[in-house]
């Protein structure tokens, strides 16, 4: 079976819902199904796709990372500082990636080597990292204006969606790691049966640590693109991102218990969240209502997805 048809088989419900939503929204506004609007959607969903890929790895391995949004925020702050300090672009990207990897590595140490529950370690890190980003920015966004940096996330000439292209490349890297490296293989092995993997000679402690570090690495790269797109590093921009990323992974067919999933499926989850977000503007839902409605839809779709996937074979 080809990869795409497997995705189709795994997440039909969500895809149909998306198709339906796009049709409905295009009735509300003639501008919805235009190339320009689709480009904007791509730009808006791009960074979430990268963060969601990070979340997918962690969830497949049987873990959880509630600090991804905070990691993205801190990595973004360091990125902006590096840009404004006049670093060359490759060095700026390296700074974002390194900060993200370092944060993820701390998560991994606490979870894999010290044996902490993932939700505690990453919740504690969330508090710490937002504290650091607020202190470093003095509670205000750091604007960036370097043209060559901003290019990385720009919609160039209103036609070339650079954020989508940058994030697409990062995402391809994630897919490659999942399918063609030891890290990818052990992510599934640890999620499927950690004890069994350990007994068959896999250094599970090291690889679990590496999974969190890699999630931090992806998130750091995503932060670089986000700062380039928004042209500002906001000290609390990541609030709630980790939840949308987890939701996208689950909607994309990643199982919460048995080490099954696919980073590629996560695209579908990210699409749903992005389509709903854009659609609320199209049907002119007042902005006060949007957090409540989006939150409700996301939690309901998680419930629906988990209910569907467990009502058959996996249950108990």
């Amino acid at each position: 079976m080809s990869g795409f048809s497997r995705i189709l088989k795994n997440v039909p419900a969500v895809l149909w819902v998306e198709l339906l939503l796009v049709i409905v929204f295009s009735f509300f506004s003639r501008n919805y199904l235009t190339t320009r609007n689709l480009l904007i959607l791509l730009q808006q969903g791009a960074v979430l796709l990268v963060i969601s890929a990070a979340a997918t790895f962690v969830i497949i391995s049987g873990g959880l990372d509630l600090s991804l949004g905070a990691i993205m925020t801190v990595a973004g702050v360091f990125t902006a500082l590096a840009v404004n300090a006049g670093f060359p672009i490759p060095a700026v990207i390296a700074v974002g990636a390194l900060v993200g990897t370092a944060c993820g590595a701390v998560n991994g140490l606490l979870i894999s080597f010290a044996g902490m529950e993932p939700f505690i370690a990453t919740l504690g890190m969330q508090g710490l990292l937002y504290g650091i980003s607020l202190a470093m920015t003095n509670k205000e966004g750091i604007p960036v204006s370097n043209e060559r940096f901003v290019f990385l996330g720009d919609l160039v000439n209103r036609t070339v969606p650079m954020a989508a292209i940058s994030c697409g490349l990062i995402f391809l890297l994630a897919v490659f790691v999942q399918n063609h490296t030891l890290l990818g293989r052990y992510t599934f092995a640890i999620g499927g049966n950690e004890e069994g993997s350990r007994l068959s000679g896999v250094e599970t402690r090291f690889w679990k640590w590496a999974i969190y570090a890699f999630a931090g690495f992806l998130t750091g790269l995503g932060a670089v693109v986000l700062v380039a797109r928004l042209e500002v590093a906001d000290p609390i921009v990541g609030v709630q991102w980790e939840f949308e990323a987890i939701a996208a992974a689950i909607l994309g067919g990643t199982s919460l218990r048995i080490g099954r999933g696919d980073v590629r499926g996560t695209i579908v989850g990210v699409m749903l969240i992005t389509i709903i977000r854009s659609g609320l503007n199209v049907v002119r839902v007042p902005s006060v209502w949007q957090p409540a409605i989006i939150g409700t839809i996301i939690i309901l779709s998680i419930v629906f997805q988990v209910w569907i996937s467990t009502s058959g074979k996996e249950r108990k």
Binding site: F243, V288, Q290, P291, A292, G295, I298, I302, W307
Partner: peptide, 27 residues
């Protein structure tokens, strides 16, 4: 209900419900 009957771990279901509920308080 989400935890026991649907089978979503509490740190995901309650974390998710939180955003919807804060959203309604804001509304």
């Amino acid at each position: 209900y989400m935890i026991a009957r649907i089978g979503i771990p509490s740190f995901i279901s309650t974390y998710g419900l939180q955003w919807a509920v804060f959203g309604f308080a804001y509304v």
